[in-house]
C-alpha cells in the first residue's frame, strides 16, 4: 500500500466527506462530543473564573492553590485520563472531566492575573461612590480583567477541544474517538481525514470567534 492510501487526494476526501457528514454515526458522535465539550467547558469557565478571582483577592487561597495551578497548567493531563476512567467509568463523565481538566487551569491563571492587575483607581472610584463588594467585583473587577479573562478562555477552549478528542480517543468507544478508532482500524482514510478536517475546523472556528471578541474588548480597553 502506498502513501496515497494514507494521504488520499483531497478530491476523494471531499467526496467521501459528504456521506460521512450525513451518516447517523457521525451525527451521533458529534452530538456526544459537543455535549461533553460544552459541559466540561461550562464547568471549567465557572470554576476557572471563580477560583481565579478568589486567588487574586484572597491571599490564603492564592498561597494554597498557586503552586498546584502552576503545576497542572503545564502538566500533560492526558496521562491522568486512565485514572479518570477508573474513577468515573468508561463513558461521557470521563470525557467531561478530561475537557474540564484540560481547560480549567489556564483560565484560572489568566483570570487571576487580570483581576490582580485591574485598575486600582477604578476600584477606589467605586468605593467613593458607595459600591459594595459585590458591585466592585461585578461592575469593575471582572470587566476590568475581561481582556485577560478572554485570552484565558480562548486558550482554555483550544485545550478543551484537545481534551474532548484525547478523552474520547483513549476511551475509544464513544463520540468522535470511536469514529477515529473505527476509521483508522479499518483503514478508511478518506473518512478518517474528513473527520480530522471537521475537528480542526471546529477548533479553529471557536478560537477565531473568541479572538474576535477579544479584539472588540481590546479596542475599548485601548486606553488602559
Amino acid at each position: 500500500m502506498g502513501v496515497s492510501s494514507i494521504f488520499p487526494p483531497i478530491s476523494s476526501i471531499l467526496m467521501v466527506a459528504s456521506t460521512v457528514l450525513s451518516s447517523e454515526k457521525f451525527i451521533k458522535a458529534i452530538e456526544i462530543s459537543l455535549r461533553t465539550f460544552a459541559l466540561g467547558m461550562t464547568l471549567a469557565l465557572l470554576v476557572g473564573i471563580g477560583l481565579g478571582a478568589l486567588m487574586a483577592r484572597v491571599k490564603t487561597v492564592r498561597e494554597i492553590l498557586g503552586t498546584w495551578v502552576n503545576i497542572f497548567v503545564s502538566a500533560p493531563i492526558s496521562a491522568l485520563v486512565p485514572i479518570l476512567m477508573g474513577i468515573l467509568g468508561i463513558g461521557e463523565a470521563t470525557v467531561v472531566a478530561t475537557v474540564f481538566l484540560f481547560a480549567v487551569f489556564v483560565i484560572i491563571l489568566d483570570t487571576q492575573v487580570g483581576i490582580s492587575k485591574a485598575d486600582r483607581s477604578l476600584v477606589e472610584m467605586g468605593h467613593s461612590f458607595g459600591a459594595n463588594r459585590y458591585q466592585i467585583f461585578t461592575k469593575i473587577l471582572i470587566l476590568s480583567a475581561l481582556p485577560e479573562i478572554l485570552a484565558g478562555i480562548r486558550l482554555g477552549v483550544i485545550r478543551g477541544v484537545k481534551g474532548v478528542v484525547i478523552g474520547q480517543l483513549l476511551i475509544s468507544i464513544i463520540g468522535v474517538g470511536e469514529l477515529f478508532e473505527l476509521y483508522s482500524k479499518h483503514f478508511l482514510m478518506e473518512e478518517f481525514w474528513s473527520l480530522v478536517i471537521v475537528v480542526f475546523a471546529f477548533a479553529l472556528l471557536l478560537s477565531e470567534a473568541i479572538a474576535y471578541c477579544e479584539r472588540r474588548v481590546e479596542y475599548y480597553a485601548g486606553s488602559r
Binding site: 485598575d119 483607581s121 472610584m125 467613593s128 461612590f129 469593575i140 476590568s144 474588548v217 475599548y220 488602559r224
Partner: peptide, 13 residues
C-alpha cells in the same frame, strides 16, 4: 461626598 480623581478613573469599557 463625591470625588473627582486626578487620573479621571473612567471605565474604559
Amino acid at each position: 461626598r463625591a470625588f473627582v480623581f486626578q487620573d479621571f478613573a473612567l471605565m474604559p469599557w
